[in-house]
Design a protein around this nucleic acid. Sequence first.
DNA 1: GTCTGAAGGG
Length: 634
Amino acid sequence: MSCFMQVAAPPSHLPPNSSSNSNHHNSKSQYRKHTISLLQKCRNANQIAPIHANVVKNGQEHDYFIVFELLRVCSKCDAIDYALKIFQKIQDPNVYHYTALIDGLVLSGSYYHGIRMYVHMIGNFVYPDNFVINSVLKACGLELDLRMGEQIHAQGLKLGLCSNRQVKLKLIELYGKSGEFEDMKRMFDEMPERDVVAMTVMMSSYFEHELAERACGIFDLVKAKDTVCWTAMIDGLVRNGEMSKALEYFRQMQREGVRANEFTIVCVLSACAQLGALELGKWVHSYVEKYDIEVNHFVGSALINMYSRCGSIEEAGEVFEGMKEREASTYNSMIVGFALNGKSTQALEMFQRMINDGTKPTNITFVGVLNACSHGGLVDFGFEIFERMQIDYSVEPQIEHYGCIVDLLGRAGQVEEAYKFIQNMKLTPDHIIWGSLLSACKVHENYVLGEQVAKILLNHDCSDTGTYVLISNFYSSCGKWKEALLVRAKVKESGIQKEPGCSSIEVGNEIHEFLLGDIRHPQKKAIYRKLEEMNQKLRLEGYYPQVDVVSQDLKDQEKEQALAIHSERLAICYGLISTEPRSTLRIVKNLRVCDDCHTTIKLMSKITQRKIIMRDRNRFHHFENGSCSCGDYW
DNA sequence: GTCTGAAGGG
C-alpha cells in the first residue's frame, strides 16, 4: 500500500478551454446548463439514456461537467452498470468522476468495488479531495474494512483532508461499525461541536455491537433529539429484541412532539409484528394516514407484515390492494403472510399475480411459495416450483429452500423420500433440515429412521435448544424415556439456557406476558379460577392430558399439572376474562406449541365459542369450533 | 459541478 503515501501533485484536470469565440462559448455553456438541469430532474434510469444520446449527438460527451452529472444521476438512480460504461469512456477522469462512481458503487452495495475504484484513482495519480475521502470511507465502513479505512485516514491526515465535518462523521462510522470505540470517541471529541448526527451514528454502532446500555447513555446526552435520532434509538431496541421498550420510546417521542417519518414507522411496525400487537399496529396505521406518511414499498411491506404476523391477513390484503406501486418485496410480504396463515391457495394465486404483473421473484418469494405448497400438501407442484425457480428465474436454492422441500415431503408422510432428498442435497444439511425430518418421523411414527436422525443431530454440533427439545420429545414419544432424559441432561451440562416458554396477549393496547405457571399477573386469582373451570369443562368433553409430551421424569399427576399451566393457557384464560364474549383471542408464543396444548386449545375454541388465533415460533394456528387451520401438523 | 445520521422479508 505504499502507493497510498505517495500521491502526485495535483494535475490539472480542468476541461479544455479550447474556444476563443465567445458566442460559441456561450451557446456551449448554455447547452451545458440546460443538460445538467435536465439530468438533475431524472427520477429513474430510463430517463437518462435519451439525454445521454442527445449529449453524444451534440458532440459534448467529453464535457467534464456534463459527464460528471451523468455519472451522479446514474448513481442516484442505481444504474451502476450504465455509470461504469460512461466512466470507461472518460479519457482522463478527475476526482469528481471518481467520487460520483464510488458513490454509485456504495449505493448499489458494491463497497469492495468502491474501495478498489479509489485505489485505482490513486494509482492514476489523481489527487484526492475531502469529497472522495468521504465517499471511500463510507465504503470502508460498510465493508467493515478497518485496515483500509485506517490507511485512508492516515493518508487523509497527511494531506489535510480530515478536518472536514463529513469526513469526521465517516471516520466515526468506520470505527464505530468496526467496534473500535476508543478511536470512534477520539474522532467525536475532535469535532468542534457535539452534533446529533455524530451521536446518532455512535448510538447505532453500540446497538450493532449489542451494547444497548451504552447506546442509551449517548441518547440521553443528546439535547435536541430529532426524528432520525429517535428512530435510530427505536430501531436499535427492536434489533436488540426489546420490543416493548421500543414502543415505549415511540410513545415518548410522540409526547415530545417529534414527528415520525417512514423510517420510524417501519421500525415501530416491526416491533408490533414481532409482539403480535394488532391494536397498536392499527394505531400506527392510522398515524400513517393521519400524517400523510407515504406508503412507499418499505412502509407497505411493513404494514402487510404487521397485519399478517398479527393473524389479520384480510387487513394485510387491503393494504396490498391499496398500494400504488408494488415491488418484489410487496408481493413477498403478501405471499409469506398467506403461507404463514395457512392460506396456501391465496399464496399461490399471489405468486401467479406477481408473475403476471411482470415482477421478478426473489429467493424469499420461493420460500413463501414452497411453504404454501408444503402446507397445502402439494408435493408435485412444490417440486415443479423448486425446478422452475432455478431454470426460469435463476434463483439458486439456499438452505431454506431445501428445508421447505424436506418439510413438504415430511408433512406428506414421505419420510424416506425426504431422507434421500437430504442425502442428495448440494448444500450441507443443517440442524434445521434434520430437525424438520425428525419432526416428520415423530408425527408419522417412523421410529427407526427417527432414531438415526436423532443420532445425527446429537453429533451435529448445534447449540440450538429447540433442537434438543425436539430430540428429547421424539425419544419420549416412542417410549425411550432414558434417552429423553439423557438429552435433557446433556443440555443442562452444556450450560445452554433453554429459552423459557412465553405467551402474550394484547388486551386494551397493552401486551400481557405469561411464563409457565406464572403468578405475577395482578389478576392471577381470576386467571387460575378460569383455568380450573376450563379444565373441568375439558374433562366433560372427554379430554385426557397426553402426559408423554412432558418428558421430565415426573409422576403422572405432576405431569398433568405441569401441562395445565403452560403459558399459552394462562394467556388464553386471561383473554377469556378480560374481553367481550365471542371476540377473537390472539396469542403469540415464542416457542412451538406442544401437542397437548394444541389439542386442548382446539377443544377450548369449541367450548368457549371463541376464535383463537395463535402464532407460534413458526406459523399460525387458527383455532375455530374444535379444529385448527394447521391440520394438526406443525 | 458534489458530502446528513435511521430502513422489510425467512
